[in-house]
Nucleic acid binder design. Structure first.
Lengths: 118, 118
DNA sequence: ATCGTAGTTTGACATCTCTCGTAGTACGAG
DNA sequence: CTCGTACTACGAGAGATGTCAAACTACGAT
């Protein structure tokens, strides 16, 4: 087939109402995860885990993506052998209007201030 | 005297430029600390540590206030035997415009949604 | 000088977190 | 069916975190 279908069993995600602010903040308080989220927001598209070039091993990468998923920040779905990741913009906006944008803006600002790469 | 002067040696605070978003988010990702910050924001004034009625011991309280101070979220100053705490609104606003308000609004919203006390 | 209040310090403990390496599973391509 | 790729699972280790209790310090009031 030319169309890549969604395969594999579904991954556990918290419902919108179950997302807790503390968990979201905790998820974003790790530099690696904040970086992932910023990249995801910048590309404005679903990305597979392997498209991120993180300075950690694959198992650590898996760990970080799971934390992001379980906290409700991203949604993950298998597509073939790849696992696609997307920001849960709508859910977060519904729960905490303006928060995600403020956070991303803050991260951008800090990256600029510190001459951070990306 | 009737005026209560600032006493004791100064406590170490990060400069505005040294405040890191990750540290702020980490500081706020703890329920007890988020609660402290919300109370501080609500009262819109400096409060002594003892005015908070937290369900933890005094040493734990000390610990949480220190995390908040060292991350740059609050400013602490001794006044007599009391230690006054104030949100670093200006510094945070200068670094990350709109972020603190978004966070506080998000916390309020969640508290309302969950029928949280306070 | 004494006392009480406010907060700190230290040490301990259970738990969590980030990281890794190795071995394993799931899927598409051939 | 076999192979390679993408990701997971399972330990394991070093370090951070939240919590407490007990002993301590600093200050104001009397």
């Amino acid at each position: 087939m030319t169309e890549t279908a969604t395969t594999g069993r579904a991954l556990p995600h918290p419902e919108r109402e179950q997302i807790r602010l503390e968990s979201v903040l905790h998820a974003l308080s790790d530099p690696m995860r904040l970086r992932i989220v910023r990249e995801l927001a910048a590309k404005e598209a679903e990305l597979s885990c392997s498209q991120f070039d993180l300075p950690v091993t694959k198992s650590t990468t898996t760990h970080h993506f799971r934390v992001l998923r379980e906290s409700g920040v991203i949604r993950q779905v298998y597509r073939g052998t790849a696992k696609m990741n997307g920001l849960r913009r709508d859910d977060l906006e519904g729960l905490f209007p303006g928060l995600l944008d403020s956070l991303l803006a803050a991260a951008d600002r800090q990256a600029g201030r510190l001459g951070d790469s990306s």
